[in-house]
Design a protein around this nucleic acid. Structure first.
Length: 599
RNA sequence: GCCUCCGUAGCUCAGUUGGCCAGAGCAACCGCCUUGUAAGCGGUCGGUCGACGGUUCGAAUCCGUCCGGAGGCUCCA
């Protein structure tokens, strides 16, 4: 619920400042070219700044960006007032006769309230112009009073990027300049610092530095190689996942990576999911497809025998690796890939079990995520899209069921109308990471399609055949994506239970190596992942190396420790615990591991 | 996919009117030092300058195609 005392961003001074900055930028860009050469599109404020889209005679360079910023600061200094004028559509058309994008916007406004994306607004708004200095723009406003109210010391142009007119790739591609401006210089600095911090946590960078994973040109884009250390983190996550699922009443299944075209024909994937599937391969004259989803296989398992109402619910879980075509431009590290492993499961249940099943799966999901330091949850409920299968009545029941479980769980949620999959409505769980960024992780979806298409049923108490509800869910979503999020969430400093190497022994001099190895052996026997840096480097170098690897525990051993049979403990937080006896240290680490948090 | 930018040793980067054998730091390896909490010293190895084609007496540098990467592509004129 929005707090009434908190001003909405749209109503804020900052919003107006950014909106005005966009206009000032448009003026600066317009002035760079001959009259009539610059076609301006739209220039709204956004979360952390503003942008403006232009159709220009040539491509902008980073050098241009500097000049534009310079010119903007001059315009700001001029303290030019923003003046509003309400005009008729006809006047507007005359004014913008050589501005095709503006004309299109005017048409939208004139024809009964379409916004700049062609979406109906349900109202017929007035048409207004805002002028500052030499520049006039079609604009609803509001703006600051004069350009001097835009803080020029807190202004910075960020990047140039391509963007389609109205977001439609069939329309012209425009040049978009992103900029940011803040009430104070300090806030700009803080914002830039946050960007830097996010950069430092970039899972692609950390993935290399910590030797967690890689991709290879020779293998292909969007295909991930998990290195030993990344693989270990994954195994730890999967082991935990497996234990929880066993406790949670899941059965584990394993299914092939390919299936015949008839399977995908029956499932509907060839009709509805074709654009994400790779082309067929020929095996002895039969077409086979790489699987983009695991569901059809799980359905096969369900119907491999006659099921009784007493058998339900059934929960089949599989870490299933799937392959989906993604356009090359959208691939991104571990977060958007072409081959990935879903921690998939399908629940089959009776209608009367649906409510319990939903409660179970949502709570199960949130509990597992909590173990990974994620606790700030919200959700989206996505409803029936235009292109979909199944009885509308059934959709309503399922949508209501999903909404109720969210309410019972007390999870804040929004509704994405028409955002569901073609086969059923869904809940997406969104988490906030350590930097406050939001990530979509888990998904819980109804499937009306497959039970129907594969004609699965169970025998009810009445001896008749009944169609079960089928629920699809993934908690981590995909192992790749989840790993990427975890790396960024922890900034590469995994909690000790997930750290690939938990402890590194750092002997001061060669003569301490034997003792270091002996201690390491004891720690290994206690169940920890331990290494010894017995290189000839100085201790400060060894500490540096271990720090860079974000090793939770650094144990320095020299003459003093050897003498007293202790180790000097340094944490990666740079905290020093001083000399500790091994049993005490073991107790401490064991506690942290069991708690699945901290060091 | 499209637009902009980018692609030089494992990593981070120098190398601009096209011209001597393509460089540095880190890493790796070999030595010396035997060291007290984020880089000790010296040496060695390592690159068909993303790939292919073209222009040229001559291409890392210019052109073309392809491959790969980064940012962006509907948060209300």
């Amino acid at each position: 619920m929005a707090d009434k005392n908190v001003e909405r961003y749209e109503d804020s001074e900052l919003y107006r400042m950014r909106h005005s900055a966009a206009h000032i930028m448009a003026q600066a860009v317009t002035e760079m070219f001959e009259p009539g050469e610059v076609k301006v599109a739209i220039g709204p404020p956004i979360d952390d700044g503003f942008y403006y889209d232009f159709d220009l005679p040539r491509n902008l360079t980073p050098e241009d960006l500097k000049n534009i910023e310079k010119r903007m600061k001059q315009i700001i200094k001029g303290k030019h007032p923003f003046e509003k004028r309400v005009i008729s559509a006809q006047e507007a058309r005359e004014h913008f006769h050589d501005q095709p994008y503006k004309l299109e916007l005017i048409d939208g406004l004139d024809q009964g309230g379409f916004d700049e994306y062609g979406q109906p607004t349900g109202q017929n708004p007035e048409i207004s112009l805002y002028t500052q200095d030499t520049f006039t723009d079609l604009c609803r406003g509001p703006h600051v009073e004069h350009t001097g109210q835009v803080n020029r010391s807190a202004l910075k142009l960020m990047t140039i990027a391509g963007a389609y007119w109205r977001g439609d790739e069939k329309r012209p591609q425009l040049q978009r300049i992103y900029g940011t401006v803040w009430p104070t210089k300090e806030e700009l600095t803080a914002y830039l610092w946050k960007l830097e911090e996010a950069k430092k946590r970039d899972h692609r960078v950390l993935g290399r530095e910590l030797d967690l994973f890689s991709t290879s040109d020779e293998v292909g884009p969007g295909l991930i190689m998990w290195h030993p250390k990344g693989g270990l983190v994954r195994k730890l996550a999967e082991d935990y996942w497996g234990d929880e699922h066993e406790q949670g009443g899941y059965d584990f299944v394993f299914t092939p990576h390919i299936g015949k075209s008839t399977l995908w024909k029956t499932s509907g994937h060839l009709d509805f999911y074709n654009e994400n599937m790779y082309s067929a391969m020929d095996i002895e004259g039969q077409e086979y497809y790489l699987k983009p989803m695991n569901c059809p296989f799980h359905v096969q398992i369900f119907r491999s025998q006659i099921r009784s109402y007493r058998d339900l619910p059934l929960r089949f879980a599989e870490k299933g690796t799937v392959y989906r075509y993604e356009r090359s431009g959208v691939l991104h590290g571990l977060l958007r890939v072409r081959g990935f492993t879903q921690d998939d499961a399908h629940h089959f249940c009776r209608p009367d079990q649906m409510r319990d099943e939903l409660d179970f799966v949502l709570n199960f999901c949130l509990n597992i995520l909590r173990a990974f330091g994620l606790s700030d949850f919200k959700a989206y409920l996505s409803t029936q899209p235009e292109k979909s299968v199944g009885d509308p009545e059934q959709w309503r029941v399922a949508e209501a069921g999903l909404e109720e479980v969210l309410q019972r769980a007390g999870l804040p949620y929004g509704v994405d109308e028409g955002g569901g999959a073609f086969y059923g409505p869904k809940i997406d769980v969104i988490v906030q990471d350590a930097l406050g960024r939001e990530w979509q992780i888990s998904t819980i979806q109804f499937d009306f399609n497959l039970p129907e298409r594969f004609d699965i049923s169970y025998v009810g108490e009445d001896g008749e055949q009944h169609r079960p509800f089928m629920l699809h869910r993934a908690l981590f979503g995909s192992m790749e994506r989840f790993f990427g999020i975890l790396i960024e969430h922890y900034g590469g400093a995994f909690p000790v239970w997930l750290s690939p190497q938990q402890i590194t022994l750092l002997p001061i001099a060669d003569r301490h190596n034997a003792y270091a190895h002996q201690v390491a052996q004891q720690l290994k026997e206690a169940g920890f992942r331990v290494g010894v840096d017995d290189s000839g480097d100085r201790i400060s170098k060894k500490v540096r190396q271990a720090q860079k690897q974000k090793t939770p525990y650094m144990l320095i051993v020299g003459d003093r420790e050897l003498e007293s049979e202790t180790v000097s403990v340094r944490l990666r937080t740079e905290e020093e615990l001083g000399a500790m006896a091994l049993p005490d240290l073991i107790d401490r680490i064991r506690a942290a591991v069991e708690a699945k948090q901290g060091l």
